[in-house]
Amino acid sequence: MTRIEELVKEQAEKHGRQRTSLMPILQAVVSSERYLSEDAMVAIANELDLSTADVYGTASFYTFLDTVPRGKYIIRVCKTITCHMKGKDEIIKTISDMLKIKLGETTNDRKFSLLQANCLGWCHKGPVMLINDEVYPEVTPEKVTEIIGKYLKKS
């Protein structure tokens, strides 16, 4: 059994093997691996007795269930209207310059991915970004430099 198969099995034991367990299992794999590899999706299909097409079809529907490799820390900057008005472009430029990656890219060491997201629900405190599940409202280029700096020091 490969490591990913073990992870999937463990999650299936925890959440059950019904169709309703699919989302929690997909989410758990993404949270541990940062994305759903082909191997992971095949393992999930086998474990839940679903077709692989069904698993891929479900996974690929959801923005947060990535099917391409992402970094350990996924940065999602809100791009919707009020955050746009309040300067999300500057925030993206600052992060982009710091990490030397463009939007949609992942650093070579697989530590960071930089993405945009649709409305994150903090319009009164924009611009806002998520790093994995952590939320950072009212960011400025200075604040963002500090925040990313802290993550750079993390392992």
């Binding site: 169709r19 309703t20 989302m23 989410q27 479900t58 959801y62 923005t63 269930l65 649709n118």
Partner: peptide, 22 residues
Amino acid sequence: SGSGAYVCGEETALMESMEGKR
């Protein structure tokens, strides 16, 4: 928990999602 799909706020889409589907 949802996974970043606006349309899931529509109640029938929401239930599809809870059932483990698109």
